[in-house]
Design a protein around this nucleic acid. Sequence first.
DNA 1: TATGAATGAGGTTTCATTCAT
DNA 2: AATGAATGAAACCTCATTCAT
Lengths: 199, 199, 199, 199
Amino acid sequence: MTRARTGDTGDEPVPQRLLRVATRLFAERGFEVTSVQQIVDEAGVTKGAMYHYFGSKDDLLSEIYGRVLRVQMARMEEAANSTGPVWQRLHSVAADVVATTVANLDDTVIFFRSMHLLHPDKQTEVRAERRRYHERVRELIAEGQRTGVFRDDKPADLVVDYFFGAVHHLGTWFNNEGELSGERVGEHFADLLLDSLRP
Amino acid sequence: MTRARTGDTGDEPVPQRLLRVATRLFAERGFEVTSVQQIVDEAGVTKGAMYHYFGSKDDLLSEIYGRVLRVQMARMEEAANSTGPVWQRLHSVAADVVATTVANLDDTVIFFRSMHLLHPDKQTEVRAERRRYHERVRELIAEGQRTGVFRDDKPADLVVDYFFGAVHHLGTWFNNEGELSGERVGEHFADLLLDSLRP
Amino acid sequence: MTRARTGDTGDEPVPQRLLRVATRLFAERGFEVTSVQQIVDEAGVTKGAMYHYFGSKDDLLSEIYGRVLRVQMARMEEAANSTGPVWQRLHSVAADVVATTVANLDDTVIFFRSMHLLHPDKQTEVRAERRRYHERVRELIAEGQRTGVFRDDKPADLVVDYFFGAVHHLGTWFNNEGELSGERVGEHFADLLLDSLRP
Amino acid sequence: MTRARTGDTGDEPVPQRLLRVATRLFAERGFEVTSVQQIVDEAGVTKGAMYHYFGSKDDLLSEIYGRVLRVQMARMEEAANSTGPVWQRLHSVAADVVATTVANLDDTVIFFRSMHLLHPDKQTEVRAERRRYHERVRELIAEGQRTGVFRDDKPADLVVDYFFGAVHHLGTWFNNEGELSGERVGEHFADLLLDSLRP
DNA sequence: TATGAATGAGGTTTCATTCAT
DNA sequence: AATGAATGAAACCTCATTCAT
């Protein structure tokens, strides 16, 4: 006799199931307001099972952060290292980061809302990884500024923070049921960025 | 014998002192992770005193939200209703919202990190107020689009979300000890916005 | 309406009551095997009340250790500093330490059974205090050896460990309902010690 | 690929290895504070393996008690049944019990610290065995008292408890790296006992 | 003979809040 | 206007043990 399980999708392994459920609940209700009991109930396992795979509730959060960073970094590297003129590469990166963010909106919501709840060490690690990410885009902009393709009266750093701010807040308003797709929003955002960089 | 009080500034009334301390702690550590005990300890009062002035811990958070909304709305109305061409008014609003945000950075950090912890009714209220704010800026952009001053191939709504996203993330990276002042960042951000709207 | 309380002795304050109940239970069943719930149930308070006065279950144990050390040290100093020939003072100390131990048998049982469960810092502190105690008695013996009253072919240190070992194990066999009183056992033990020290 | 194992001594069978590791950990940290996971990790086996050989964690403790009792009883019988005057036999028994105790110090530490954690039935059994042990020594003393070799103004029972107390506390202070060997301490203790029994 | 995922009961602790004073 | 002892619900986590393989 198998127990009925909410969100049971066939044979999805327990750790993945827990992570999936936790991600949804953390995004919907908030990390601290979601109890371990709620997570395991929705995942259809017991607390003991969860603690068999994850050392703590914090570990779940850490794992989500790790996953986000891996995914985003991989996508970005790909776009940034493509060939073509710098404006095209930047446009591509910008549009892609929006699409990726929208495709993993729960992760993004959690990311910026709950960073302060991570263990300080993990926080440092996450920040370092984000800085690498940020830096990679800054280089693109600086390259365009050096070659005269982009205006150079705005610090490249500031432009990155400006654009990523816009991206990171997608979680606040973007609606998957809305009329604009993630890709469409990506195009618009990339256009706005590129146009604001015209010399 | 009076107890030593952190941040004791002479005769600041108890409610104000509690609100000030709570704002700092919520921004530094997070709302859920800050206990009422910590707040009253740092404010140099007892729990009974706090519950005399505030009905609950949530009330403190609500109060902070109310304050933020009042301040930002007032500043914005002023800038938006000034005279001058629409691009100038938008530039002024944009620069000002950045400066105001930076001047109340703790509030902003709390705002976007802890909204989901408010009582649903209060959340609805806050969202409505923000929508009015958002709408006021959207009108400015639409006005510019109608009069041909701004490009009209980008939904005004989207542009507002784009720009406010950048503003709301200031709390993540802006550093008061850094080399750029809030006003300077406001100028840069407003420039970037206006330039991205060129037809 | 006052709640019925097991072990309610009139107006004994809550902290004392908790400590008294905890001491009994720790001695009867063991520290780790006694739950906080059992303690507060028997003391007639809630868990919250206990944590209002004691930071943790470990704190209860620490407090018991502190009390034991204070009591024993005070009694011993008094006996050791009395006047009279050295053999008389040693006899008096020896008899007294037995009587005190028997009078606080629960404390003694806990002391030697649960020391390893204390926080390492507290353990260090307890050990240091015991060493002072041990040292005070060693001096008495050494004094007797120097003056030729006691044999000197046995290290004074070893004699102290020998005798205190006997005392500390009283908890294993001494029975308050038995035919020998604590004072009587103290006399016997002191006699045995003194006689084994005859030159 | 085989896992690294702490204390792996070639082909020591699994049950012995588990018992050896458990003994060390129980003595170092305490029974209740040592988890089955720690034991099997250090022994380089899995939990399943442990439960294959031992019915429960308690069984490990029981086994240790059984081993201690067998060893000590055997040694003592031998010494007590030797020929020679009673004072010589008692001296021999006393010295030997110290040496045996020191040679199995971990066992002794566990014995007196964790007896209360045994299953009541096992406790009864252990106590009965100890009583037989105790009784055997008491008889020696009584024999000496009857024959006028020992003083008879001290209950033989009490003398046994006195001496065994000293022995059982060796675990508290005896240090194998110290300057006195177990045999040497045994001689001293036996001397002190015999001398305190002089008429 | 051995694995290790999973259980489930129970443990300690935290904390917003109340209330007699 | 303020105290602080006390509540009680709920949180996170541990762990000996079982069982299908």
